[in-house]
Design a protein around this nucleic acid. Structure first.
Lengths: 231, 231, 231, 231
DNA sequence: CATGAATGAGAATTCATTCAT
DNA sequence: GATGAATGAATTCTCATTCAT
């Protein structure tokens, strides 16, 4: 797999002069990830970014706009990546594999981003603007579309509702991320095949995510029942 | 199925004289569900409970203790119910059916409770004391145990790790609840078989949850792949 | 000197039935001494006294009345003792010796009482009622009277104002008590004649107070100047 | 005596722009003196200083830090002055005269400062951090040193302990200040030689303090006993 | 653009006091 | 008398937001 150009990474946007804004967002992500949205003060973000207190208000109307900016940019990039995956002329299985890789791998590479997206933004969605709700909904739509096209190509069962089935797939991935983020799940070699080569924590986590991703797709496609026939 | 005595309901603890405490918790659940933990003031809880401001502090040390009390009591009851289900001499499939019913039905009957448990507590790493983490972990362990016993009885595939597989099942249910709670998912007749009888919203939601629950279990057991064999 | 029946001690007033009031005062003294007036809650006093919360309000109108009751009773007894000393047909020196013994010894025997009288009441005197002000003033008047009578009997210099001189005497004693109470002064054997017999802390403090008392009276009477003649 | 450049006065530190902090301290001293520490609200201090509520918290962590800042700065300046006096090549008597003048005169010139130092801080064991205790102790050490050097120079009796004797001197001065501060002592012409010229309250108080100061030193040096010899 | 002082609305928490039982 | 639940005013401290420089 050709290093899929980390879809969440925008740090290459030149954090020089014109993009102090990006600097602030980057800092905000770290601070939000560490202390939560409500536990973070503007002052924390400013000092993390190494800039003056009031400057934050030159670039953002208020605290909430920082959060929604993070959402819009990161989530947008994330959706673009998924959209790209969904549009390929590959099998549903291959697409789902890639989706799992992006979602789990995303957390592996940029844990703070995921932490903020999953924990802080989704939770504050109660106050969400309609466009944000819709943006979250698009994730489901994209996966549902993959499934629907899989049905059309005869790869998947016709008697399941793609709009419900997508929950099973996304839910599995999301709960794993949440679990890791909250330290309920501890990615460790314990559940890994010891014959696989492994070096250092970095590698180990990566291996864990790979294995888990494969399992999730496997279960989603084939089910856990013996010989596929209790239904 | 004989309405399994709503396992989350403890309101029968006589909210009369001796249980002002329960009254406050009940009020807090409503308020937290409506405004979120951070958006709720003690004053709101007090007025929702119809008591004086300071009385809240007779029963709870501080705001956070209210939240964790809610968690401990409701989550404990929830786990007890699951434990009971897991201990029955039924098939894995039957148990998973019941688990889905309890989780989705729980939200149907007491949306506020679920809202608070899922959004305010479970997703909040900030309040996570070790014992709370552990309590959340028990949910996974119980489901994993159901799967493991299913394997032992030859009902389920041996080549999947129950500790990972349980994420797929729980994740599916949780994301549905979250979606509904956040209004991303709108339970409506659109995705329902129009031939089923339906009367009023109440009924419609119930039917939706039933159908979704069945689908989730179906997918989890049999997979979405055609004739169970892409893996 | 025949153990002068600890003049501050009223604990023998039978703390049985009719004197729950005394019980509360006793408890209040301990609590005030420990935490200061403002740092003490009615609840603390009640629990120290082993009685119910609200009962305090049966015996005292409010928190302040507790403090002023302590003052009136203890201070009154204290003044009575001094009055008694002043009325004896003894020399001024003998009387001053006794005053020093009562004041320093009082602290030795009932440190809490003195702590409350000196630190809490005197500080709250800013809000004091005129009668309290007057009561404090009586201490000075009594000592001044001792001095005046000493002048009349030719024992003391005529060219000093008894109303000012009494400050020198009382001030010396008070600052010693304050110092000990605040732990600025640590009564220890360091400044004691090592030839004196001493056993245990109790004894050591007592000896310290005795020695200090003698020194204070000595200085007050004879001055610190060489051969009494720099004035 | 050429008005010795009021040693406690630091108001010349330009309370203009850069020293908002000093402005707040000044206001706090007034408010504390008027209402006592516990009777003063941050709001009072802010409004006395003519600034916004929250600005106080820009300069001080909390209410207590305001009090201890007052202590540190004023008491430090006070000790510096005493240190200076003690280091002069003068007689013990002259030094004690100056100490009395500084202490009594300090109250005359800046009654609020003394009120806060004496009533709110010195008598409050609750705020006594070790370094504050030590700072108070230094007052005693300085006076004890004056006495010790007086002994070495043959001016003072050798048979008194300077560490105890200093209590007699400081105690006399302190109780006078306390008395005046608490209105137990009313500086008035009553105890003044009516032949001395006097104009207005200002002058009268000054005269009173001078006379009292001289008496205190006189008694401390020569004692009140006739012909210096009852000991 | 940058800075950080200034503002002030909130919100949590405390606790003296009252009151029903 | 006794109890302790109930009340709610009072106050501290926080922090998003504004603004003068």
């Amino acid at each position: 797999m050709p290093a899929p150009a980390d879809p969440l990474d925008r740090s290459s946007e030149s954090p020089s002069r014109r993009d102090k804004r990006a600097l602030i967002l980057e800092a905000a992500i770290h601070v939000f990830a560490r202390n939560g949205y409500h536990g973070s003060r503007i002052a924390d973000i400013a000092s993390e970014a190494g800039i003056a207190y009031g400057l934050v208000y030159h670039y953002f109307k208020n605290k909430e706009e920082i959060l929604s900016s993070i959402f819009e940019e990161r989530w947008g990039a994330f959706l673009d990546t998924l959209e790209h995956i969904a549009s390929q002329p590959a099998s549903a299985r291959a697409k789902l594999d890639q989706v799992a890789t992006v979602i789990l791998g995303g957390h592996h590479v940029r844990p703070e981003w995921v932490k903020v997206l999953v924990l802080e933004i989704q939770r504050s969605s109660r106050f969400a603007r309609p466009d944000q709700i819709r943006a979250v909904g698009r994730l489901f739509q994209i996966v549902a579309r993959i499934l629907r096209e899989g049905q059309e190509k005869g790869e998947l069962r016709m008697d399941i509702d793609p709009d419900v089935a997508c929950y099973s797939f996304i839910g599995a991935l999301e709960i794993i991320i949440t679990g890791v983020v909250l330290n309920v799940i501890q990615p460790d070699s314990a559940s890994l095949d010891p014959t696989e080569p492994s070096s250092g924590e970095e590698r180990r986590d990566g291996a864990y995510y790979e294995k888990v991703g494969r399992t999730v797709v496997d279960i989603f496609l084939n089910g856990v029942a013996r010989s596929g026939g209790t239904g």
